[in-house]
Structure formats: structure tokens, C-alpha cells
């Protein structure tokens, strides 16, 4: 009996050990592939793109089940200029960076805000959207007008989002959600007192879903710059994408796409 228990224990120990080693192995894999990601993409003929598909008007599925949106259009144009096709991998936000880490895709196109914490671990393209933060509250709330008012209040955020950082810094009592839709539903239901999100997204939400229980609080603040996120170690891919972004800015393609989704130029 003791022997058997020992056997089980050993197997468990080995499993834990193997899982522990796996993180070290990842870095090794990347080192050997370092020079070749752009070449791999050219060879494959596709660039794999991680995107939520649940974040309109940036990335979402239309009623026919086809992926659409601003980010989708932009990365499609970028891919065209790399002479490859964009292959989308619809991924939940909470699994987005782990998907990038585990090489499920080469790039994230999902309005990822560029911040210092993320720059430590990931590379970013030049920003392709400049937006701002906007507070959203229940219609009955009158005392949350700036981010400072978040202190001690119950604020909903998406796990791992830039908005989480902002609310945390302001000293909010944070509640985590899977996506912004769930957050806004709970603001309307008064389970939480407010939230903060991209001004472009909130505008789209309130336009498509006029909810009498919701209103924006105060003015837009904090310019947020969004870029495509890459694993570290493939500078030639980042460079190629940056070059493509510059091209679509110069030839007016970018402005056309921006006008189509927002009626304004969101690059500034």
C-alpha cells in the first residue's frame, strides 16, 4: 500500500516538474525561431491574427457570421501589403496574450493599448488608433465625473485590460468581468456603480443600444494609443507591419476605413 502511494506521488511530482519546465522551454523555442517569423509568415502565405470578434465596431461577427470591423479592415490591408492573407483566430480576451505566447497566432489586432507594463513583455507596432478613456455610469449617479471619483467605488473592468489599470490606480473597488457588455449590463442594473472604457466603443454601444439607464460621466481623458501586439524577438515583422501602416496612411486607405467605421479620423 505504501509502495503504491509512493508511486502515485512520484508520478504527480513528475507531472508538476514537467509543467514547471515548460515555461523555460518556450523561450528556447522562440530563440531558434527568432530570425524566421516574418519568413515563416511569407512561407505560410498567411499571418495569423488573434482577435476577439466580440468588440464592435473594431472586431465583431455580422449576422452572417463573418468577421468585420475597423481592426479587421486595417490588419487585412496590412497583410495585403505583406503579400499574405490574414487568418483570424477568434479568441476571448482573457486568453489573448496566452494565445500569443503559445504561438497560436503571430499578432493581436484588438485595440490593444500600448502601456509600459505590456511593453516589458511584448513588442508593439506604431499606434493605429488614438482614442481616449470615457467613464460610463448609471443614469442616477451624479457624483462620478472624473477618474478620481472612482476611489472606493464599485467599478467593473475587463480582466487584464488597460481600463483595469486605470481604475486600480484610482483606488476603485474593482469587480472583474469577461467583457464590456457584461459590465455595462451590470452598471444599468446598479450592481456596480460605473466603468471606464474606450470612448469609441462607448459611443458605438450607446448608439446601437440606447439604454436609458446608462450615461457617460464627465469628459474624455487619458489619450490611449492602440497598436498591434507581437511576441518579442521578431523586429523584422514589426518593421514590416509599421511600413505597411505608413503606406496605408499615405495612400488614403486608412482614412477611408476610419471614416467608414467612425465618421472621423481616429489616428490623431
Amino acid at each position: 500500500m505504501i509502495k503504491r502511494n509512493l508511486g502515485i506521488f512520484l508520478i504527480l511530482l513528475l507531472t508538476v516538474f514537467a509543467i514547471g519546465c515548460s515555461s523555460q522551454q518556450t523561450t528556447k523555442v522562440e530563440e531558434t525561431k527568432k530570425q524566421t517569423l516574418l519568413e515563416t509568415i511569407h512561407h505560410r502565405g498567411t499571418i495569423k491574427v488573434g482577435t476577439e470578434g466580440t468588440y464592435p465596431p473594431f472586431t465583431f461577427k455580422n449576422e452572417k457570421g463573418e468577421l468585420e470591423g475597423f481592426d479587421v479592415d486595417i490588419i487585412n490591408e496590412v497583410a495585403k501589403r505583406l503579400h499574405v492573407k490574414a487568418e483570424f483566430v477568434p479568441t476571448e480576451w482573457k486568453a489573448m496574450f496566452v494565445g500569443l505566447d503559445s504561438e497560436r497566432f503571430d499578432v493581436i489586432a484588438n485595440q490593444v493599448s500600448i502601456n509600459e507594463k505590456r511593453l516589458e513583455k511584448y513588442d508593439f507596432s506604431a499606434p493605429y488608433t488614438v482614442s481616449g478613456a470615457q467613464i460610463i455610469v448609471n443614469k442616477d449617479t451624479t457624483d462620478i465625473n472624473t477618474v478620481e471619483d472612482f476611489k472606493g467605488r464599485k467599478i467593473g473592468v475587463t480582466q487584464g485590460s488597460n481600463w483595469e489599470e486605470i481604475a486600480k490606480k484610482a483606488g476603485a473597488n474593482i469587480q472583474h468581468y469577461k467583457g464590456a457588455n457584461e459590465i455595462f449590463a451590470d452598471v444599468a442594473a446598479k450592481r456596480i456603480e460605473g466603468s471606464v472604457n474606450d470612448r469609441l466603443y462607448i459611443a458605438e454601444y450607446l448608439l446601437k443600444n440606447p439604454n436609458p439607464n446608462l450615461k457617460v460621466g464627465g469628459k474624455t481623458f487619458d489619450t490611449a494609443k492602440m497598436g498591434f501586439a507581437f511576441r518579442k524577438g521578431s523586429p523584422e515583422l514589426v518593421e514590416a507591419v509599421d511600413k505597411a501602416l505608413k503606406e496605408i496612411q499615405a495612400d488614403g486607405t486608412y482614412l477611408k476605413i476610419s471614416q467608414k467605421w467612425f465618421g472621423e479620423d481616429v489616428s490623431k
Binding site: Y55, P56, F60, K61, N62, E63, G65, N181, K208
Partner: peptide, 10 residues
Amino acid sequence: EEQSSAQFVF
């Protein structure tokens, strides 16, 4: 999830 979040209908 994809449809409901795109249409804002829950």
C-alpha cells in the same frame, strides 16, 4: 456570444 456582443442584444 459573438452575435450578442456585436448586436448589443443579450
